[in-house]
């Protein structure tokens, strides 16, 4: 009996030793990013929303380059695609992907929608995975938003809740 208890304590200790430093590091990173403006404090369920941006941008090539650079600087994801149609971002930590899709506009303005496309979670560290995904997505979204504001301070944003489907 004593051995079983000892075994459980050792397993719990190892789990904490592995997970705790990562969580503490994430906390410090988040605090620093909030102070520097690289992150915005958002609603905890912001990842369930889709954002629609509408901006008047003259030099679109410069805008797309700036957007790519801003996303690269976040170091939270890799991306593929073309800003003239759609770009897919894949998270470096955890299994998530988000997309920035260019929409048709009648008045010559630049319109994009941004939202989480896919997120896979599971296991005993599910809440930790969700917190990581949420923080990384926040870094990405903040970088995109800042670039929009940099090129057009009058950028309009509209939000819609995503009707997610769960699959096992």
């Amino acid at each position: 009996m004593v051995w079983i208890i000892l075994f459980i304590v050792v397993v719990m200790g190892i789990t904490l030793a592995v997970l705790l430093p990562g969580a503490i590091e994430d906390g410090k990173k988040r605090k620093a990013a909030l102070a520097s403006g690289d992150l915005i404090k958002r609603n905890p369920s912001f990842y369930k929303d889709k954002e629609f941006f509408k901006a008047n941008i003259q030099d679109q090539d410069a805008f797309f380059n700036a957007l790519s650079e801003a996303v690269k600087r976040t170091q939270v994801c890799s991306f593929s695609g073309n800003y003239n149609s759609s770009v897919v971002y894949r998270g470096n930590r955890g299994q998530w992907s988000a997309s920035l899709v260019r929409l048709q506009s009648d008045d010559g303005s630049v319109m994009f929608s941004f939202g989480l496309s896919n997120y896979t979670s599971g296991g005993r560290t599910e809440s930790m995975q969700l917190a990581r995904m949420s923080m990384d997505l926040n870094f990405l979204l903040t970088a995109i938003e800042k670039t929009f504001v940099q090129f057009d301070p009058q950028t309009q944003v509209n939000v819609q809740a995503i009707n997610f489907k769960t699959h096992y």
Partner: peptide, 16 residues
């Protein structure tokens, strides 16, 4: 969200 309508994106940074 429909009631809120479009918002100025810069307000988010100012609000933060």
């Amino acid at each position: 969200y429909q009631q809120q309508g479009p918002q100025n994106l810069a307000d988010r940074f100012a609000g933060a």
